[in-house]
């Protein structure tokens, strides 16, 4: 399940930041949104839209990050997000 979620997250990131940039970056679970991908805050919001479109309201990135400050959010890794998706899907299974 989480491999599939990883594939989906990588696809969504490519849509948000552009394919040509991602060609230079190997995305894995340890990839950070800030340091490795250079994701802008507003692009993280756009990623949240795509997650909601794909997974439904259960994967609510706004709720997931509600208890974090902006630095904690930007320290998140792709793996953190994939785990959140997997946990949410398990809860709704």
């Amino acid at each position: 399940m989480s491999d599939d979620a990883l594939t989906q997250v990588v696809r969504m990131l490519a849509e948000v930041v552009g394919e040509d940039f991602l060609l230079d970056v190997e995305i894995g679970r340890d990839t950070t949104f800030n340091d490795d991908l250079g994701l802008e805050s507003i692009e993280f919001v756009a990623l949240a839209d795509r997650l909601r479109d794909h997974y439904g309201d259960g994967v609510d990135l706004a709720a997931f990050i509600a208890g974090m400050d902006i630095d904690e959010i930007m320290d998140l890794t792709v793996g953190d997000l994939v785990d959140h998706i997997a946990a949410t899907e398990a809860a709704h299974a």
Binding site: E40, S41, I42, V45, A62, A63, I65, A66, D69, I70
Partner: peptide, 25 residues
């Protein structure tokens, strides 16, 4: 600046308090 400065700070808590929060760039 853009809407993300509210999205990550006060918009969530305002919505939690019972508002319909609308943010735009």
């Amino acid at each position: 600046d853009n809407l993300s400065s509210f999205y990550y700070t006060i918009a969530g808590p305002v919505a939690d308090a019972g508002a319909h929060a609308v943010l735009y760039d």
